[in-house]
């Protein structure tokens, strides 16, 4: 299977990455080379095989239903959470206007 220039542009848009014509010039052939390589997986008969869900099987744990059980990952961290934000105002993340 190979992808067209339009498809690669569409994928970039889905991935929220702005690409220009020059980017597409190299992404399209690179994509097709990689897809051509992974194509060989189709040779493998997997009709009797379950897809892997966990590489080392283990049950997911439940934590106790306690507020702030681990203070590190509990609440009350507003200043820490906002410390690296490009724009933070009034205790919130700042973003450009979303509603016209």
């Amino acid at each position: 299977m190979s992808v067209t220039r339009e498809q690669v542009a569409k994928i970039a848009s889905l991935a929220r990455i702005k690409v220009d014509e020059g980017d597409l010039d190299h992404f399209v052939p690179e994509f097709n080379a990689i897809l051509g390589f992974v194509e060989q997986l189709g040779e493998v008969d997997t009709s009797q095989v379950e897809p892997m869900t966990a590489v080392i099987p283990q049950a997911l744990r439940l934590r106790d239903d306690v507020i702030d059980a681990d203070p590190l990952t509990g609440g009350g961290k507003q200043a820490d959470v906002l410390a690296n934000a490009p724009v933070a105002e009034h205790g919130f993340f700042g973003v450009p206007k979303v509603i016209e």
């Binding site: 980017d23 190299h26 992404f27 990689i34």
Partner: peptide
């Protein structure tokens, strides 16, 4: 994301998206 990611990272994100 266009300005921040390098070409290999973009390639893999887009491949994964596909």
């Amino acid at each position: 994301r266009a300005a921040g990611f390098g070409p290999e990272v973009k390639r893999r994100i887009m491949l994964g998206t596909y």
